[in-house]
């Protein structure tokens, strides 16, 4: 029960860091103004156009596609698979399980494999393309290895060493309802959970901020209308009065 409590506490702590940390960064991005219009053109001239541009960027990785097909295919497969895998895990958090979550369960398993394939591709580029190797810090490899290990331990639990998912679901439900239940003690599960906790904690302090960050990228989220609409930042307004306009 000590182990269960420890994991329950760590899990709650990680969720708090993830949510509050990311919220803090988002607030920071909102509060810092973009004093000049700098969309990378050709850019949409309307708000709805910008929404569509961001949609294409987030769902299809449009710019990356233009840039390099290998990185695009690996990272697109990785990200999309990851979303399916994450969605598959919703079943531990809701009761009764939504029907669409039940429906995607088998796809989630395939996605576990494709997610790993995608990451191995990205790792291979990092190691074998001299330019990408040059720009990689230890943290860039560790991040990939961390998510790879999460995926691998997950798949091992599915195909090699089954864990008691009924008890596990009770554990998760227990955290949500503040009625703590014991956690199965299979080593694979503990490693899997620990790595997920680490990932959640480092999220707001690392490059994983690219996920919320892209929505704040001025080159992608600005409307191209500088001649029609005057755009001025708060801090720049002080110059206006100093020369008596």
């Amino acid at each position: 029960m000590i182990l269960s409590s420890l994991f329950a506490l760590l899990f709650l702590f990680a969720v708090a860091v993830l949510v509050l940390g990311t919220a803090y960064k988002i607030k920071q991005y909102i509060n810092v103004p973009a004093p000049l219009k700098i969309p990378t053109t050709p850019a949409p001239t309307t708000k709805s156009g910008v929404v569509w541009r961001l949609f294409r960027e987030v769902v299809f990785f449009e710019s990356l596609f233009k840039s390099t097909k290998w990185t695009w295919i690996f990272s697109w497969i990785f990200h999309m698979s990851m979303f399916v895998v994450l969605a598959r895990h919703i079943r531990y958090f809701n009761e009764p399980v939504w029907s669409w979550v039940a429906l995607i369960q088998p796809f989630g398993i395939y996605a576990g494999f494709t997610m790993i394939i995608g990451m191995l591709g990205l790792l291979a580029r990092r190691i074998f393309v001299d330019r990408v190797k040059y720009i990689s810090s230890p943290s860039d490899y560790i991040m990939l290895l961390l998510i790879l290990s999460i995926g691998a331990t997950g798949l091992l639990m599915k195909f090699v060493e089954h864990t008691d998912i009924v008890t596990f679901k009770a554990f998760i439900q227990g955290i949500i309802t503040f009625n703590w239940q014991p956690l199965p003690t299979d080593p694979l599960l503990l490693v899997h959970l620990m790595l997920v906790i680490i990932l959640m904690i480092i999220f707001p302090f690392s490059k994983l901020l690219h996920a919320p960050g892209i929505f704040f990228s001025p080159t992608r989220n600005q409307v191209d209308n500088p001649r029609e609409q005057r755009h001025i930042a708060k801090w720049a307004e002080k110059f206006e009065t100093s020369d008596g306009q």
């Binding site: 960064k25 710019s63 990356l64 840039s67 390099t68 990185t71 990272s75 990205l122 580029r125 990092r126 393309v129 330019r131 990408v132 720009i135 990689s136 810090s137 860039d140 490059k207 901020l209 690219h210 960050g213 892209i214 990228s217």
Partner: peptide, 10 residues
């Protein structure tokens, strides 16, 4: 903050 070092620009 958000560069992931993907190498697309290299």
């Amino acid at each position: 903050d958000i560069c992931v070092k993907c190498g697309a620009c290299t």
